[in-house]
Design a protein around this nucleic acid. Sequence first.
DNA 1: GGACTCATGTAAGCTGTTACATGATTTC
DNA 2: GAAATCATGTAACAGCTTACATGAGTCC
Lengths: 186, 186
Amino acid sequence: MQLKTLCLGALCLGDATGYDIKKLFETAFTHFHHASFGSIYPALKKLESEGLVKSRVEPGPRHPERRLFSTTVAGRSAFVRLLAETAPTEHLRSEFLVLLFFAHLLPTEVLADKLTEVEKRYEQQLDYLKSLPREGRASAGMALTIDLGIAACQAKLETLRTHRSSLLARHRDIPEGSAGENPCAG
Amino acid sequence: MQLKTLCLGALCLGDATGYDIKKLFETAFTHFHHASFGSIYPALKKLESEGLVKSRVEPGPRHPERRLFSTTVAGRSAFVRLLAETAPTEHLRSEFLVLLFFAHLLPTEVLADKLTEVEKRYEQQLDYLKSLPREGRASAGMALTIDLGIAACQAKLETLRTHRSSLLARHRDIPEGSAGENPCAG
DNA sequence: GGACTCATGTAAGCTGTTACATGATTTC
DNA sequence: GAAATCATGTAACAGCTTACATGAGTCC
């Protein structure tokens, strides 16, 4: 799914500026998608040129001049169609698991620091997801995206906490820079 | 982390062809990284031009001619350095959670199909990860990458199974195409 | 002989990132 | 008056995917 489509979806939730959409990516979408200004603004421009959204400039004494986007009828039906056609895939890209996979090549202290860093991030993410309102304002589907994020985060955090000390203990015993046998062949 | 670095890492596990590395991405790395031939072969070429890997062509009666890559001393130390510098981040990109987030815009049957599809995929992934050998050949870190994959997958699968029927029941009651209130503002 | 796996590579192009460039408004 | 937040945009470039193009070896 292209970012363009996601921006169109964001506008199906209500009128918004490019800045608002960036905020959405940093809050409600944070655990399953990412986008930067450099892609959001061009995406909105493209959507407008395709007639899927329209915009008006709002001058304001209470904020800098801004461009508010809204969906068009064509935009809403295009989004629903695109949504229905989208395969429900997931792609994780984890530098952390790469690090863990090659942990035997790292000094124990470096590995310990990385583990601590990840645990902290998981804790923060868990706190954040738990702080989100799940009743009333959000639909059942939205609530489930949060619950799935919480479940996965919690499971990983528990696994990490369970194995941390034994991993580090074993790690101290291996020769530094050992590559070992090829464990992946075959 | 660039794909180039990951290819270099793969070669730190033992000599391999581009094709072998692709296999590694489809097996050991499958739940945390992805790469296609179109990026692997150029990456290996680049690594060789930088002196981090070397290669020899192996003609064979038992297989088509192939190019076997190995790391150089410079390559191994470069990889260890790059690894130590890598921040242990994770980025999920989930079209499935996008779908769930906008579930209220989909017909109930379409939503049900998507949920079924995801559950099946999770089940397959879980079976696969559980089938991997965790003792003996793999290092403790490699084993933990598998355990983390299993934990996350299991947690998501359970959450999905728990909420599926109530989600679909509630879903049938909402007006079709309802966008509702903006649940994300503020 | 057909299907499948092993095996290598290129080229066009899409998508998105990073860094740059700018400035208003609000809050302390 | 400084810092934070609100706000918009562009340009250069990185990085990877898709599709194409090709062919040998193995198993049934």
